[in-house]
Design a protein around this nucleic acid. Sequence first.
DNA 1: CTGCCTTTTGTGAATTTTCACAAATCGCTG
DNA 2: CAGCGATTTGTGAAAATTCACAAAAGGCAG
Lengths: 413, 413
Amino acid sequence: MSVQPGYFDQFQHADIDELADAIGDLLQNPITIEDADHKLIAYSSHGESTDLARRSTIMGRRVPEKVLTRLWKDGVFQQLLTKEDPVHIPPKEDIGLGRRVAIAIRKGTDVLGYIWAQEENQPITEKDDEILRQAARVAVPRLVQRQGKRKAEEQRRKEFFWELLLGNHTSESFIKRKAESLQVELPAQYLICVIEAEETRLEQYLYPLLLRDKLLWVMDGAQLILLIGLNSQGGRENALLLRKVEQFLDDSLEKLVDHTPHGKATAGYGKIYSEYSDIVRSYREALHVLEVKRLFFEETRQIKGYHQLGIYRFLRQLKSWSDAEGYVNEQLKTLAAYDQDNQTHLLETLETYLDSAGKVNVAAQHLHIHINTLNYRLRRIEEIIQVDLDDQNQRTSLYLDLKLNKMPDTTGK
Amino acid sequence: MSVQPGYFDQFQHADIDELADAIGDLLQNPITIEDADHKLIAYSSHGESTDLARRSTIMGRRVPEKVLTRLWKDGVFQQLLTKEDPVHIPPKEDIGLGRRVAIAIRKGTDVLGYIWAQEENQPITEKDDEILRQAARVAVPRLVQRQGKRKAEEQRRKEFFWELLLGNHTSESFIKRKAESLQVELPAQYLICVIEAEETRLEQYLYPLLLRDKLLWVMDGAQLILLIGLNSQGGRENALLLRKVEQFLDDSLEKLVDHTPHGKATAGYGKIYSEYSDIVRSYREALHVLEVKRLFFEETRQIKGYHQLGIYRFLRQLKSWSDAEGYVNEQLKTLAAYDQDNQTHLLETLETYLDSAGKVNVAAQHLHIHINTLNYRLRRIEEIIQVDLDDQNQRTSLYLDLKLNKMPDTTGK
DNA sequence: CTGCCTTTTGTGAATTTTCACAAATCGCTG
DNA sequence: CAGCGATTTGTGAAAATTCACAAAAGGCAG
């Protein structure tokens, strides 16, 4: 089936449902048109469909969550968002989704919505793609009009969120009033999370997650900043809630790493607060986590929350104090000099040993050396820098100073 | 032998040597008069003496070091400094010191010098004490006159030292010039040491140490502040020099503890510097050590030097920073609450375990519990506060926060 | 090259730590 | 008081650590 250029021009000012019917007639198949949020906008009146997903979508006026999740997971949306052309989707029977073709309705780089065509009555071939392309083009102004208001509101919400992130508001009651007027639901407890990846279209990969929970979020360069609500006031169960946040982040990051070329993606989140004027705190804490993770990539691999930072919570501060004081750990200096002179690796040995919490077997494995070699080196270290590694104070001090030495100098700043 | 009151008045304006002769005549024994620094001022011309100490004193114009040290060690000077009456000293043949009697020449509480009477020709009885008392009284103006200038100089030296301690001078060349004009020998390398004891006459017990090495020192309340020179520029041997300083302090403290009722005496010293404008640093460091030792008495028992402080170097600053941030370690809070609710001692257990550098046998011994009990408690702690004690970061963090929690709140300040 | 020193690796025994399991104690609740 | 859960202590075996000693390898100076 083919169509002459400009065929759809007649529907320019018609009802969008008529457009759906027109496409359906041409393709001889059921059609649905959705906005970017997968809300149903129009659907063709093509008789009874056997497709479960279609029925659910029409009944619920939105594509079911289960279907969306699956399509994101399978990368269908990633294709839709990046390609101009229609995407042919094989059937996914386990979620009641028959074979179909979809195309994004786009204006510039923005995706305004989607046209879905089921292959129920007859197959849709590559030649039919042109029909969908033209239909997508003619649908644009309707969606623009439709989304215009929604987008402006969204914009005002994001601005409000930025104000909160930057700590512009200190009055709780003011924040509550403004949130209400913007129809933003502020949770009783929350935390701020920042996800960072080199991928520029970061938010696209996370759309389903962002939309599903109606979260407050903004982009800032390569960072996605979002407010995660924790619907529970019992402080006791916070541990459980945090585990859910961790799970969410792990999922998101896994998704990002799969789709980014270099696979670099990190996330950090701040502490849980309930006063909204503390949003700025949670945000800064999240940023602090990211900063630490850049500096101590290996050491902080499994850290995402500010409350897990441990010594890294104050290491930056400690570094600037030490620099200002002109402090240098003479022991580490001595050890570094010894390494230099004798081509040994005592400094690395010491750090690995301390990182391994004093477990010699673990440390030896990390260093790829015999356990006796490690013990010999440790005794050597104790001799050279006159330290007693069984003294927790001395040990802690060395551990911290080793980490401090890895940080960039702050005096130049 | 006795003497009428006012007998010595005739020597009021005579040469002090004549006074010595007069006493000698009355007691029929050799006499020496010394100033507070044990420099010889006068001696009776009573024939040849068999006493080795006397001969050495006269020949060297000062009491030999060996004799002084021994007399301090045996507590003779302590008696002389505290008692108004003459002190009868048994012979100490190993240092060539025959039997003798001595009395302090004092004006108010200040001791200006000493009169020594050997028992060579005939015994000196209790009845002769009055002679010595009167002689001591009449010797005062001569010694006052003699010491006036020296004392003024000493005063000016102390003032100079205070200026250095407070960092009033920043120009090295100025400091050097002023030191020279005051005849103060500044060592190439030095450190500042502060000794503190409840005993108010602290410096008296340490006189021999102070005088022997001609150190710069001042008293500040219960604190004795002194500058210790380290005559070596090779940075390599600093460890050895420091060990000597430690030895010196151990000796001094032992001496103090022996003589003070409650036995409280501590010392702290700063880092080694060579620029004299850094005296203020070394002094502040020494004070910092003392402050830390007050707060963490048990933990810092064997710490005296600033360089040994380890984590305590920055704990005070970290505390005030954490307080300002409103930081509280939720884990420790949880554990404390658990202890409260269940009458357990998990917090103490955790601290002891961490203090013991993770050695379970050591920690169990400290806590007087079975080793399995300790292991059980540790597993329990890991469960309750969701911590992995094999993770050095988490461990260190808990260790530091435990110490921080022991410090007084800084927000009230 | 030899001799000397430092470092690495190997071996084996003594000691310590870890772990699983069981018994006893204790406080609390129905 | 019986029963329950938390805690303490005991026992024994497996695993890890510590220690002493020895052999081998490597660099370096004479």
